[in-house]
Each structure stands twice: as structure tokens, then as C-alpha cells.
């Protein structure tokens, strides 16, 4: 579904290189966890997939469903099935959640030549989804994310993901700032969404989420590169040993260059 080949990405404004050659292959039905210390480039990778114009891809290729992804603008990537749950979801003052999500779903249905939902049909699914994420209807009548707590914003991202049912969901630290109940709610959402036809990339700083969502692969991103990949047991190992252990392994591989 997704083939990332030797991606290098820079900050558009000052050309600082953040991603330094990433390779990743994600197939339908898989869940990949991307872990790594703060500042290692996890969000940058997620944003590059979404087409955030703050970053430029300086070399490498990304194919999504066998098509070149990098030449597509962000809205087309979304319509083709990529969903990014933002680490810091934006507030949209005055834009009602209901209206926003309905418009997004309509756009997607139109794009895939499906019939748009009536307000009533949409409302029914929207209410169920909202309830499953433990968000009050009242909150969803407000402006998108405005005045939401950190945890409410994360759950609002999950509602959007569930409503749009993307082929590839990239969840950027959707677990951070959540208490244990909210974490379980979010994990339930992801597990409910998971199927053999779609894929999920979980970007997370902590191993905690992976107790509830079992990944097929775990990758450790350090200094813009994937330093180590493995199965779910790698997450456990990171929890007990910390990231320093991988950093050392990575810098040995680099011939000592990457050592900080």
C-alpha cells in the first residue's frame, strides 16, 4: 500500500535536513508503530506523507497504492485514502464539527463515485461514532477543536478517522496526553477500524499504547533514520532499555558519525 524509498526531507524555510533516508514498506492489513525520542523526525515523516508544505522532499520516492504520492496536493492525498491524525490538531474557529466532517465525507464519497449521505444518514453515523469516542454531542456542535482539552482533541481526530475510514491512517502521538480510560477508548477506535484492507501507522513516543493495539512491526526512528526495526517485542525492549541503547547501535552502524 505504501512504499517509502530513501526519503530525504528538509524544512522548506531554511533547508535543514530532518529526514535522512527513510525506507518503509506498509502492506494492507498491517499496523506499524514508529517510535523514537523527541525531535527524531516522527512528525516530519507523518507530515511529509500528508503533504504539509512546510517540508520539501529533496530526494527519494513515495508510492501509495502504486501511484506517486509526492506529486499530489494534500487534499488529493486525503481523497485517495491517507489520513493524518495531527499531533497538535488545529482549532477552526466558527467552523462546526458536524459541517466540517460532513463536507469531508461528502468530498471523499464524490471522489470515489459514491452517493453522498443525506443529513439524516450522516447524523445517525456521526452520533454513533461520537458516542463510541466518549465525546458529547454538545461538544461536536461547537467549532472544530475550539476550547477542547488535549484529550478531547485527540478523540475528535479519531472521530474524523472513523468517519472517513481511510486506507492508510497515520496517527501522530494520538496517545499522548490521554488518561488510561481515554487511551483505551482511542485504542478501541483503532482496533475497530483495523481491517485486512487498510493499514495504520502509529507514531508514538511511549510503549503504553502498544499494550492495547498490537503492531505487526515496530520501527525506531533516530535522527531522521530508521535505526532499528522489529516485531512487537522491540517495543518492550525499548521500554526496559530506553532509546539510548538503539542510539548506540545506530551510531555503530553509522561508523560513529551519528553519536550525540
Amino acid at each position: 500500500m505504501l512504499e517509502i524509498k530513501d526519503i530525504h526531507a528538509v524544512v522548506a524555510e531554511n533547508q535543514t535536513e530532518i529526514l535522512k533516508g527513510i525506507n518503509l514498506s506498509v502492506k494492507a492489513g498491517e499496523v506499524h508503530a514508529i517510535m523514537g525520542p523527541n525531535g527524531s523526525g516522527k512528525s516530519t515523516l507523518a507530515n511529509v506523507l500528508a503533504g504539509q508544505p512546510d517540508y520539501e522532499v529533496s530526494s527519494g520516492t513515495i508510492e501509495f497504492k502504486k501511484e506517486d504520492l509526492l506529486s499530489l496536493p494534500p487534499d488529493e492525498r486525503a481523497l485517495k485514502g491517507i489520513f493524518l491524525a495531527f499531533q497538535y490538531p488545529m482549532e477552526l474557529p466558527g467552523v462546526r464539527s458536524w459541517q466540517f466532517i460532513k463536507a469531508a465525507l461528502d468530498a471523499k464519497l464524490r471522489y470515489t463515485n459514491q452517493k453522498e449521505l443525506t443529513a439524516r444518514e450522516f447524523d445517525k453515523i456521526f452520533k454513533e461514532t461520537t458516542a463510541s469516542m466518549d465525546i458529547s454531542e454538545d461538544l461536536m456542535r461547537r467549532s472544530v477543536n475550539e476550547g477542547f482539552s488535549g484529550g478531547e482533541k485527540k478523540r475528535s481526530e479519531m472521530i474524523q478517522m472513523l468517519m472517513l475510514s481511510p486506507d492508510l491512517a497515520v496517527l501522530d502521538e494520538t496517545d499522548s496526553g490521554l488518561d488510561i480510560d481515554a487511551l483505551k477508548t482511542v485504542a478501541n477506535g483503532v482496533n475497530q477500524h483495523r481491517s485486512k484492507n487498510n493499514a495504520v501507522i502509529l507514531v508514538t513516543h511511549y510503549q503504553r499504547l502498544l499494550n492495547y493495539i498490537k503492531p505487526d512491526y515496530v520501527h525506531v526512528l533516530i535522527n531522521g533514520k530508521i535505526a532499528k526495526s522489529g516485531g512487537p517485542e522491540l517495543a518492550k525492549e525499548l521500554e526496559s532499555k530506553g532509546y539510548d541503547w538503539v542510539k548506540e547501535v545506530a551510531s555503530e552502524k553509522d561508523g560513529g558519525k551519528g553519536k550525540s
Binding site: 500528508a50 503533504g51 504539509q52 508544505p53 496536493p73 494534500p74 487534499d75 492525498r77 486525503a78 481523497l79 489520513f83 493524518l84 495531527f86 490538531p89 488545529m90 477552526l92 474557529p93 466558527g94 467552523v95 459541517q99 466540517f100 466532517i101 463536507a103 469531508a104 468530498a107 471523499k108 471522489y111 467549532s143 474524523q160 472517513l164
Partner: peptide
């Protein structure tokens, strides 16, 4: 960007924000 990432086109995103 947030709105584009949900599949809204530029015109719709712009008008939603103006209306908001």
C-alpha cells in the same frame, strides 16, 4: 492545511474559514 488533509479543496477550506 488541516482542512486539506481532510480532503476539502482549497476553495471550500477557504470559504469555511471565512464563514467561520
Amino acid at each position: 492545511m488541516y482542512m486539506l488533509a481532510r480532503g476539502l479543496d482549497m476553495e471550500t477550506a477557504t470559504s469555511f474559514l471565512i464563514q467561520g
